[in-house]
Design a protein around this nucleic acid. Structure first.
Lengths: 156, 156
DNA sequence: GCTTGACCTCAAGCGTACTTGAGGTTGTTG
DNA sequence: CAACAACCTCAAGTACGCTTGAGGTCAAGC
């Protein structure tokens, strides 16, 4: 039924690291920050439930989207901490992320279209250029730094 | 011909800050890092050529794309430092940036499609999921951190 | 039983992109 | 001419997301 390589045992730090691409030090960091959790053996070594594979991968994928760890944590916090999340749990998270992604793509496409316009018109007139007008950039409400993405608040 | 509000005088730090949305401290930082330049008055105060408006705005827009300052600097270094860039100069830069943008949009769209697939299939099998397989993510050549975007090397 | 590698903790360090603060100068304006 | 905002320099601090190092433990193989 199940391929044996799917496994069912807990994972050592080294295994989780190798299979997710995250450094062991990063796993420690994620745990310290509450993004993942582990059980300890008698010898005080970490053992990870297999669903941590998914959590860590989710973290990494989300980071590729430019989402800060605190937002990823907020999303993961909606999953059960003490047992493996259900399919529905992951589906909900994924759907939320897909929205983020859609928004991000829209944003970039608008940026691209504006940039194309600027190339077309030469756009030596800053006054009329959306890209080069700070109070206009991506609907920015004013000057000053802001996050690339709005805070992730999935199904709260 | 030219609207008077287009201006032709140099800008003070405060003016440049207000018109680009970058903090004065950020302007100092950009100058220290060689991304912008200024002339000094007799009293040692900075005066910015008007094309610095465009440089700073370019910096900020590029950052919205997730491009690191060193890559932005590399791009700006292809512009003349001692005189205002020509329309062709900016056009070339913008075109290079548009490529970055297109690539980034493609990347995100692939990610979105994969994510949609994962939602569709439930994707509790990590083995078959592109998103959750680190050696596959976005064509990653292996585990370990990597930059979201390839280095910007515009028309070098 | 000893070596070896994987593991442990905790503190410090690093790169990016700035901001903040101290202490002092400039320049405009009433 | 005094006040006051805006400017100056330089050093240190901040936030994020980790990595590195020191000093020690655990577990498997020879």
């Amino acid at each position: 039924m199940e391929k044996p390589d799917s496994g069912h045992k807990e994972l050592t730090p080294g295994e989780l690291s190798e299979r997710t691409g995250a450094a062991v030090s990063a796993l420690h960091f994620y745990e310290k920050e509450g993004l993942i959790s582990s059980r300890r053996t008698g010898g005080n070594q970490r053992r990870y439930r297999r669903d941590m594979l998914r959590r860590v991968s989710f973290i990494r994928v989300s980071q590729q989207l430019g989402i800060p760890l605190r937002d990823i944590k907020a999303a993961l916090d909606t999953l059960p901490q003490d047992k493996a999340p259900t399919k529905a749990d992951w589906k909900r998270l994924s759907a939320g992320w897909r929205e983020q992604l859609d928004a991000r793509i829209d944003q970039l496409q608008r940026l691209r279209d504006d940039l194309t316009g600027c190339i077309g018109c030469g756009c030596l007139s800053l006054r009329s250029c959306k890209l080069y007008n700070p109070s206009d950039i991506l609907g920015d409400a004013g000057p000053g730094p802001r996050r690339l993405l709005p805070p992730a608040r999935p199904a709260d």
